[in-house]
Write a protein that binds this DNA or RNA. Structure first.
Lengths: 344, 344
DNA sequence: TCCCCGCCTGAAATCGTTTACATGTTTAGC
DNA sequence: GCTAAACATGTAAACGATTTCAGGCGGGGA
């Protein structure tokens, strides 16, 4: 039973009004008389009319879609953020497109072209967009229809929604300090990443505040991945003077680390405490359950979506200072942290 | 520098041809003379023309998008499948929309409306769509523009791409048997799920083949989630006569199970072996590293995408029997399985 | 009674493509 | 050398919505 699509004209005929009136009934119902409005809605119901987005978009000179740039779609970390974004736009007539910025074939210039020609707005979860790209975006007038969520690009005027990474790192260090740890290592994210920077800064600040020494080789470079956690563990195992605790820049790093340490006979948390960052679903069920910094990823996504939506529809809710919307984080204490082995 | 958008007419003027010719240069370049074609492409390059999808879609009576129905966007299991799908459509002029079928506000009828009015094709990763919904989809002519990936709906004529779940379950049981296990429990997925059914079937078949007894209370109902793994562990801990191995319907279940068992002092794999299903990224780095059945999720997504694309463009590659495209699975042996404790 | 002013509504232009049909120009066949 | 077919291009009509502009109607003030 494939009916041919109902057009606005069919509705108009059924309601004995003009197409203009039907259109108005949908967009500005209060401009119609009670009577006409009812008639139109009845006709819409009867005919089963659905607006044709292509026609609507063409006439309104818009794309009817927003684009989410994800650094790596297969990384589960992003799924909750996407869910948050998606939830907001589901209620609107914008479609949500998702593109993997690091995928094969996603070369840079094509990205910009692809993006701006086809969508009304952009949320980037990728803070690693190269300056040329950012410049190109700016040139093409992405200024008030693009923003960052989770990650962001340094020195861009575009607004961003972020977790309070600095505070998160501080909480982690403070927690370890309170347990009695004084020898704390840190596995960072990738060097050029803004989150890496923020988390390291928070860590160093808190360390300084507490009068803890900074030992250079206890800052181990990683890249948020499981593999880099494994590599960090190997480094630690080789150390003559091992730290008693490690603060990892992501939960995944923590997992890679713990897994490798455990295999080598180092017990967590008895021999070594570990704190992660993110609180992904699995952390609660890791062995041992992971102490970590919780990010409200869904909220973060939803906020970003709402913000973009406001901008697209012209509402311009002024952002707090620096166009940054900060989302709180919290420390979640579980079983991967304990007081250091006695005597250390 | 916000230029007003370049229209096909601007290109036509620049190339001193008609708009029809420009259009043809893009869609059927071989119908033009060498000379004209070159001129048009040069003009396109010069003007920086991008086709307006809205206009194109309107004229061609299509939506220019495909929809992916995901049961739960925040479940990391799906991210790789999405990446596979997304990768394929990135090369085309179809956009990929993603909708969470279980999200708040995604009520059933709206789903169908939303779907068919706005997209050209659908890939559902949700095998739990209710019969009414399926009927509605069928009514609205979704027959040759919808298919399933990963999960599927029983008794639907729609094609599907799936992992070989039955074989996967068999491999798991065989592996445990080879290690010497005779008392094997199983934690299922949700009762109404097709994957649950397939995996249970494979398990029972292999069991029968090996002459293993079926003990009813060793089949524990779960729902693929971490929490259900925890619950299953509690059930097992209460048993007078415990199994020596557990085959879990998903890796997440395995994690929930191991985590809870470990906390209760039961060692994996020394006291109890555990096998999962899926092989998500984390499994390799769990403690202990999880023995599991690997699903090639990205491949699965890509195959489904390619299939849908073929159907949308009219190519009708005949599917093997029953419109099912089966993707192989494989056993990955890691550290969560070992011979049963001696004497059992 | 007449005029003006709101308030609703309708006619028609418009958004940027694609494509059926028309037109003009070669080429091939005899 | 003539006709028909093949080929290359142009003209103009859609696709289905939104929105400007103008007109009809009724009511209130003078």
């Amino acid at each position: 039973m494939v009916d041919k699509p109902v057009r606005i004209q069919d509705v108009a005929r059924a309601a004995r009004v003009s197409t203009a009136t039907v259109s108005r009934a949908l967009s500005t119902p209060d401009k119609l008389s009670e009577e006409t409005r009812k008639a139109v809605f009845e006709a819409i119901r009867l005919t089963g009319y659905r607006v044709n987005q292509a026609a609507r978009n063409l006439r309104m000179q818009r794309a009817g879609a927003v684009l989410i740039l994800v650094p790596n779609l297969s990384n589960p970390f992003f799924s909750q953020i996407l869910a948050g974004i998606s939830g907001v736009f589901m209620e609107t007539d914008y479609s949500v497109l998702i593109a993997d910025t690091r995928a094969r074939g996603a070369d840079d210039t094509r990205l910009v072209d692809y993006s701006l020609a086809r969508v009304d707005g952009i949320i980037s979860l990728d803070g690693g967009l190269r300056p040329e790209i950012m410049a190109e975006f700016a040139d093409r007038g992405a200024g008030d229809r693009m923003l960052f969520a989770c990650e962001w690009v340094q020195d861009t005027p575009l607004p961003s929604v972020r977790s309070d990474n600095v505070t998160g790192a501080r909480l982690a260090i403070q927690h370890l300090y309170d347990l009695g740890h004084r020898n704390i290592a840190h596995v960072t994210g990738p060097e050029d990443n803004v989150l890496t920077h923020a988390r390291r800064t928070g860590m160093l600040e808190q360390r300084a505040r507490l009068g803890l020494p900074v030992q250079e080789d206890w800052i181990i470079r990683g890249d948020f991945s499981l593999d880099s956690g494994r590599d960090a563990a190997r480094r630690i195992l080789e150390m003559a003077h091992r730290p008693t605790a490690v603060f990892c820049a992501s939960d995944q790093v923590a997992f890679g680390l713990i897994s490798t340490l455990t295999a080598a006979g180092v017990r967590v948390p008895e021999d070594l405490s570990v704190v992660g960052f993110d609180d992904i679903e699995l952390s609660e069920y890791y062995v041992p359950a992971l102490t970590t910094i919780r990010q409200f990823r869904r909220t973060l996504g939803a906020r970003a979506a709402r913000l973009l939506l406001d901008r697209l529809t012209g509402a311009r809710p002024d952002l707090p200072d620096g166009d940054v919307l900060m989302v709180d984080v919290e420390l979640v204490v579980r079983d991967s942290t304990a007081p250091p082995p006695s005597g250390r």
